[in-house]
Design a protein around this nucleic acid. Structure first.
Lengths: 330, 330
DNA sequence: TTGAAAGCGCTAACAC
DNA sequence: GTGTTAGCGCTTTCAA
């Protein structure tokens, strides 16, 4: 058994040609005379030669790898973003180098800087504010952000959070709800946009908003927050949750507390994660096209890599999905 | 603005030392005299030098990257495996190169072979049988399989599927169910083990098993199969589903059909995905410790990389989680 | 169409 | 401690 894998030189020797010829053959760079081609083919087959992508990348400067940083891969919304991004990447023969920000106590900056060195481009979802993320401009690699950035000239993909929240509020108002609460996740950058959207709608009809905060964007946190929201001083008739996970947890805990959804309280989420449909009652939410977001982000990046940069922000249109967790106020 | 990033030679020149010294400094290989260290530090800072990991990898032969192929990242079970694997990887300064088998129409073999060239080791979850996967032995890289392989001398991690299924069947039998159906996913390699486990239990009490098949391991497929199972000739009192996703879909469709869970039919899953707990009724299932599986697989791989190979199969003990989707037969 | 030679940016002996 | 040098496996002019 031979330990080391054969190099281009081994092939050249075996085929009786130069390494340059082998290289060109491997890259399909040109045509060859029949005898040379035959010998090359035989030698490569014989030796089981596969060109070393590392050496290749070092010269070409391209790795055919895309770096993807995600806030939390366990959140089905982000999982679907990854799924979509991966689909497009694969289609163009790129692979994903994945970083789950949630799992790393290290600072994001050095992590992303290190990542940037190993990939052709990055898709970044991060907790950093525009100001804190300014250094990303100097990464020297094409970049796509997974949220709008007004300050930075970096292409991005996202949904209209204000509108999404506005639609949910409008839906609840139309159902006759007057005491509406928002159960947010203040740590997220888009939380404010969602609050703004809800407020905008409530202002129009002269209602005020009760804002609560979950300690994480997870079902567990939603469970935890439920009693605080429902059994505190201002019991709401409807609760708009920051995302589906919080809403799912909230609904579960409500059931434990003997509070019926939607009879006693209407509940909504955002994201339309796959399981929102299988909860009971099925969750009213806003679809944000997670997979399409991933796909588009990757497409933009690949376009940029091909020399067609697109510096704009692409905003997906949110779509209200009414299911069984919201009902007319009684 | 300078386009190219500085090389080790630029630093050496700026600091007035040799490239070897810079290299050693970057790798913390030894101690340096105060003046050299100071100059090095200044030059590196000045130029914003970062060593090129590609060039480094080419020489050392190590990329600090682990390849991870997963059947379907959208399945929360696998998502959690990734989460766990990523956690351990990060802790040892490794990054994940992810491939979602579900998304690739390409053959697994060339895909994994190409992946193997770019990583230090691989964790593989694949549809291939032991026989079909024999070539993996020649990959030349440490490998960990995400299912037991009796034929191949490759370390692996998994759960005792037979026992998991046995426990579910026993639970249902103990509840008094006599007409028990299994809604499987025949395309999966472990489906047979689960059928065997169920049969083993039913044989002990003299019952027979009705086996159905879902066309995918997804909630959608579970929905699709429900009427076929429940409204066909042998209506079961309890249904053991291949996994939680199928069970979740099954329960949703059952509700649509006016069939109550667990009053009319008990339903179980396998995996204990996060959302099984938030479904209503909450799903009785078997916990398979998805995250721990990922963690252990990665730990084994990293141990192998460090020269401590572990060729055994690590079997997690399944744990029955009884929730509200199962009840005594009436 | 083919080949010779000059590197890509870095590490690893080995010498000083 | 520090420097010299010889590559790692490959691509890429440029000449033949």
């Amino acid at each position: 058994m031979k330990k080391l894998s054969p190099t281009i030189r081994d092939v050249a020797a075996a085929a009786g040609v130069s390494v340059a010829t082998v290289s060109k053959y491997m890259n399909g760079a040109q045509r060859f005379s029949a005898p040379v081609e035959a010998k090359l083919k035989a030698a490569i087959e014989d030796l089981g030669y596969r060109s070393n992508p590392l050496a290749r990348s070092m010269i070409t400067g391209r790795t055919r790898t895309i770096g993807l940083t995600i806030l939390d891969i366990a959140n089905p919304h982000f999982t679907n973003v990854v799924k979509g991004a991966n689909r497009i990447a694969l289609r163009h023969d790129y692979t994903l180098l994945l970083v789950d920000i949630d799992e790393t106590q290290a600072l994001e900056r050095p992590l992303i800087e290190a990542l940037a060195q190993r990939v052709d481009g990055l898709i970044v979802s991060s907790r950093l504010s525009d100001e804190e993320a300014r250094w990303m401009l100097d990464l020297g690699k094409p970049l796509v952000l997974l949220r709008r950035s007004d300050e930075l000239p970096i292409p991005s993909v996202g949904i209209d959070n204000r509108l999404a929240a506005y639609m949910l509020a409008r839906h609840l108002v139309n159902l006759g709800h007057r005491q509406i609460a928002y159960l947010g996740f203040g740590h997220a950058r888009i939380n404010d946009e969602r609050i703004r959207g809800v407020r905008e709608c409530l202002d129009e009809v002269g209602l005020t908003l009760d804002v609560h905060d979950a300690h994480a964007p997870t079902a567990r946190a939603g469970e935890h927050a439920c009693s605080r929201v429902m059994l505190g001083p201002h019991r709401p008739q409807a609760v708009i949750c920051y995302n589906d996970l919080i809403a799912l947890g909230f609904m579960k805990e409500a059931a434990s507390l003997g509070i019926r959804v939607p009879e006693d309280v209407s509940v909504t989420g955002v994201d339309n994660v796959p399981y929102s449909e299988y909860a009971s009652p099925a969750l009213t939410t806003v679809d944000v096209q997670s997979e399409k977001m991933g796909e588009l982000a990757m497409q933009k990046l690949i376009d940029a890599l091909a020399g067609h940069p697109d510096t704009g922000h692409s905003m997906f249109e949110p779509r209200l999905i009414v299911r069984d967790s919201t009902a007319p106020c009684r």
